[in-house]
Design a protein around this nucleic acid. Structure first.
Lengths: 208, 208, 208, 208
DNA sequence: GATGAATGAGTTTTCATTCAT
DNA sequence: CATGAATGAAAACTCATTCAT
């Protein structure tokens, strides 16, 4: 039992405290942005002293990096769930069944705030950019293998399939920016059109 | 003649200096982000004293707003050009002819950096958000009217047409994020697929 | 005519402009205090450019000094009027007849604001202090001579008379501070008691 | 014992440091005025870094407020002492016995400088004005009750008594301004006349 | 006389980070 | 582990003053 909890917690209570910091920082970054969140505020939200934050993270940037890494795990988890929840139908059915949920997630202001914060940071900060890119590669690969397991369209070679999967991801990325720029954007209509495009990309569009 | 140039208000030297500030700030924001660019640095880049910046802008935020506004004018200009350059073919031909150029523009690291910076700022700063949204509405409306002038698909009512045009914009938005997350992203393939989707959206997809 | 206007205006339009500055500065100092009033704001209120203020005053402090000097002239004028308005009765009657008006003047927030501003400045700034003290001496002497003309109490020698006149001035000074500290201070009752004390000081109190 | 000192909250070292700031700021304000005393200078005088000042005070204004509050406590203490030191005689005797001391205090340049600084600030700054007014009310009430305990003149109803006590306070207020304007002001003669007026106000002046 | 663009030092305030306890 | 006092280097912004026009 003790061993098990060790394995889970990586180092007992310490890991828990570390997660507290990440949780608190994520919330702060969402609401106030990276530069708007002082260590003092984060430490307060995490229920510990400012000084003690530095027990778990070398500096403020390290917190951003850790959050970026955690984001990866969350999405990977989502993908795993996606495959398990498959009730029937082909690839397109499986994907389109999730669309509404992903649309909602990607247009949630809290998610959008954190995502854009990370992206803007990545655009300037190579360390953060590296993490985001590695994370993306990981997720992209996982998604690709999932699609192959479920049954990829025979007409598309690997490169073309990958490209089309990326186009799907691109649309979800675009949603976040679109929602920000147009508060009246119709999410249901968007989900419907996205599903149409997914089907088009995976079944109808000529292979080339 | 002199009166004419006065009316324009641009040759007033004061306006020139103001533009200097915007130019410098744009460059700084791209490279260092909004919060990473101090007034001191911007003033240095603009070739004037820090105090003098405040002769032209009430505060730092006002600079962001002015940049956002300028961005709007640039895109509006692009749209105007788009219509004038129409050499032949239908709506889809006109649009797809521009795709490669827009892809290039939206994935240019300098453009992407500024854009994400503005978006991240807008996600938290209501003043900036307002400007971006107004700008977007303006551009969206202009695009919509352009399409109607050129010849909108008969099968789509106004609301549905607008939605599909927004989906096109959404893809270009998504490009910026995708490029950041995947440095190996294949731009040519993306342009080809985007054009396929544009045709799908405006000619093939069922009206509903 | 020309000569006359020269004599009056000291230097034609220039003096007028100078007075404009003083007027504007006085109003600004009242409302925002010495340190709260920038040259920019004063120049705006005076209807001229910031740079041109320095045509009339060596620096900001010189404006304060000029205002302090002007204050002296205003009060001297008041004293002259006091003697002319004498309708009848003895010294005490003459003085008490003015009390209500002086009470009102000294508790007017605008007057109080400027007065305290000048006093606080004088407490630190020797130049301003000198001006205020010289002004006070001038006014005190004038007041003293006025009282002698009207008819000083026989029982008091010059030094004692002067002291008692100063006590009267002291009460009016105190009013300004009292009004600030107690917004409910009853001005009518104060005027009544002040008049009682004036009579006490000039007619009843033992000479010593 | 330790608990007791903790309860007092003064020995907490933190409180000591806080007092250091107040001491330093008081001295700075006296010498240079509120606006003439930068946080940098105050911090230097207090023997700590500029940033650390903000550990104890939210902003510069909060320091002024704390000083105003401390002034209140000092005067309240004085009043307490006044009652305890009562050796004999009636109300007027008790009051006049203190006059010389209060005259000296109110004409001490250091005290005068701080007082006028606070007053000038209060004339414009509502927050400071509130504090000064609350403090004044507190002290006025305390003074009033003290007089009633010692034995108020039977002929005066409460409102009239309070008014006359305020007139006494007014004279002491006036002293501060008078001393500033007339460096040769005779303090002994002033004390003598003030005592005469106190007796007049509490024993001789008709009740009305 | 008159303007207002321009400067640059100075102001308050914030904050990541360190370290004695 | 944990605290929070302490630092000091920024940051944004203001403003008296100067000077070319």
């Amino acid at each position: 039992m003790c061993a098990a909890s060790r394995t889970r917690g990586e180092s007992d209570k310490g890991e828990l405290r570390r997660q507290q910091v990440l949780e608190a920082a994520t919330e702060c970054f969402r609401r106030e942005g990276f530069h708007g969140s002082s260590i003092a505020r984060i430490s307060q939200a995490a229920g510990m002293s400012p000084g003690h934050i530095y027990h778990y993270f070398a500096n403020k940037e390290a917190i951003v990096e850790a959050i970026a890494e955690r984001e990866e795990h969350d999405i990977a988890e989502l993908l795993r769930k996606l495959e398990q929840d498959r009730e029937g139908g082909g690839l397109v059915d499986m994907l389109t069944r999730q669309t509404a949920e992903i649309v909602e997630r990607n247009t949630d202001p809290a998610y959008a705030g954190l995502m854009l914060e990370l992206a803007a940071e990545a655009a300037r900060n190579p360390a953060v950019r590296k993490i985001l890119q590695r994370s993306e590669r990981e997720i992209g690969g996982q998604f690709f293998r999932l699609v192959q397991r479920v049954g990829a369209p025979a007409a598309l070679d690997d490169a073309e399939l990958q490209m089309r999967l990326q186009m799907i991801a691109l649309m979800f990325n675009g949603l976040t920016l679109r929602m920000l720029n147009d508060p009246d954007f119709d999410l249901d209509a968007a989900a419907r059109l996205i599903n149409g495009i997914i089907r088009f990309l995976l079944e109808e569009a000529p292979p080339r």
